[in-house]
């Protein structure tokens, strides 16, 4: 009897192969999400995990849930995460400072304990389980997965389903309320008031920061502005973009100042021909 049950619980070879491909992918994505320093990398690792889980749902005779997983989770929710990451800023990475001493260590210990607890309970309680399966003659029978789920939602689960609509409307209104910034009430300052505030010292400097490419030979954001004496203006360097180093610009600065090698008569740009 027990042997027969265990025989019924084994899965087909194709499902085993897809599990051993998709399961490690999902695990690798989850681990990568934890260990990636950059939040954008974490989000992309989580996308990998969710895609693998969607495929696992389809393998487990839940095609509707698999497609909803891919469309809603990886399509909508993770893109929302990426948008918020872009709004908050790419440099909003984690700090490595531990505020609570030994927090990482204890989190790891607790995690191992939780894993042992859950896997032990699951493995013991399901060691000889009978796999009923959602074969064609049972729950998925006749009309297929989507039609049966639809019938369940609109009969047995009708009231919870209506409640989810209320929940979604509440969430949308809440997001709008939280995300709305009333700029009118805060009072916009006129240009004159801004100038006076600048010269009273409310800002770091009275003039705007030097833009990239001012007094330089290029207008790229990655090019720092040059001061009149030819040195790099430190305030024009972007925090996010690695700026072109000063020695790379040395030749161009010489050509602007006129101290560089004289251009050939047929040269299109000064200093270019001699450098070859």
């Amino acid at each position: 009897m027990l042997l027969a049950q265990q025989g019924a619980a084994t899965v087909s070879t194709g499902e085993a192969v897809s599990f051993w491909v998709l399961g490690p992918l999902a695990l690798a994505g989850a681990l990568g999400m934890i260990f990636a320093r950059n939040a954008v990398h974490s989000a992309l690792f989580l996308v990998m995990t969710m895609l693998s889980l969607g495929c696992i749902y389809m393998v487990q005779q839940a095609p509707f849930l698999g497609f909803v997983q891919i469309i809603v989770y990886t399509g909508a929710i993770m893109m929302l995460f990426l948008f918020v990451l872009m709004l908050v800023g790419r440099d909003a990475s984690d700090s490595v400072v531990e505020v609570l001493r030994g927090q990482r260590l204890w989190a790891g210990v607790l995690g191992v304990g939780l894993a042992v607890l859950i896997t032990g309970a699951v493995a013991r309680s399901l060691i000889d389980v009978t796999d009923q399966g959602l074969a064609a003659d049972t729950a998925n029978g006749g009309r297929g997965n989507v039609a049966n789920i639809g019938q369940l939602i609109f009969s047995d689960y009708l009231f919870p389903f209506e409640l989810t609509s209320a929940l979604l409307i509440t969430a949308a209104v809440g997001a709008m309320v939280l995300g709305y910034v009333n700029r009118e009430q805060r009072g916009r300052r006129t240009q004159k008031e801004l100038v006076e505030a600048r010269f009273r010292g409310e800002h770091d400097r009275p003039s705007p920061l030097p833009g990239p490419g001012v007094f330089a030979t290029a207008n790229s954001v990655a090019t720092p502005a040059l001061l009149p004496d030819g040195s790099v203006a430190p305030e024009s360097l972007s925090r996010l973009i690695e700026s072109t180093t000063a020695d790379k610009l040395a030749a161009e600065r010489e050509s602007v100042a006129g101290t560089g090698p004289a251009a050939g008569t047929r040269a299109l740009a000064p200093g270019k021909e001699e450098s070859r």
């Binding site: 989850a30 995690g111 699951v122 399901l126």
Partner: peptide, 16 residues
């Protein structure tokens, strides 16, 4: 392999 493996995967993902 039995369907229990899916539950183990789920437990590991939850722990992570």
């Amino acid at each position: 392999m039995t369907p229990t493996y899916y539950l183990l995967l789920s437990a590991l993902l939850f722990t992570i």
